[in-house]
């Protein structure tokens, strides 16, 4: 039995402790917004927050998240998270959409660290998130836009 706090809710799961967090989220907790893309920390589709850090949940054993706070896209309700979602919608970022929740989870960490990220900051933070549809131009634009929204909703 492993206890974690997911999106503010305490949950107990009965799984092999080596099971990657990704599959616990998707299969045990039915949180399907976190995606499987590579299973090897190569693509970022499975990005979630564990105690405020972006992690690739496909390679993090659930035991390593025991007792920690896990946030998924479904629980990304902090103001900068809401700004990111709004900016993503304004810029119509997604194409197929499969990578996008992971992109947003990575961007959320960036916005927490930098109120006004530069292009170089965005490059450094987002390099681990692959988008096969190559929506990168809009991802960059949406991060800038979200930062502006979070700073004071400049339109």
């Amino acid at each position: 039995m492993i206890t974690l706090e997911v999106n503010g809710r305490s949950v107990v799961v009965d799984v092999d402790p080596g099971t990657p967090l990704l599959w616990v989220l998707r299969e045990n907790l039915q949180l399907m917004g976190t995606k499987y893309g590579c299973g090897a920390a190569q693509c970022g589709s499975c990005t979630v927050h564990v105690d405020g850090n972006a992690v690739r949940s496909c390679v993090l054993p659930v035991s390593a998240a025991a007792g920690k706070k896990v946030t998924t896209i479904e629980g990304l309700t902090e103001p900068s998270g809401a700004a990111l979602k709004q900016a993503w919608i304004e810029l119509d970022v997604p194409q197929c959409g499969y990578c996008q929740t992971g992109q947003i989870m990575s961007a959320a960490i960036l916005l927490r660290q930098k109120r006004q990220p530069s292009d170089a900051d965005i490059d450094a933070c987002m390099g681990g998130n692959v988008c096969r549809c190559a929506t990168y131009v809009r991802i960059r634009g949406a991060i800038h836009r979200a930062a502006a929204l979070a700073r004071g909703g400049a339109r």
Binding site: L31, T72, E74, W88, I89, D92, G97, T101, I104
Partner: peptide
Amino acid sequence: PRLDTRAKVEGSAVFSIDVN
């Protein structure tokens, strides 16, 4: 604006891998 954007941003868009 695309009709499928919000679902894809919020993680509620259903791909076949999400069917249970």
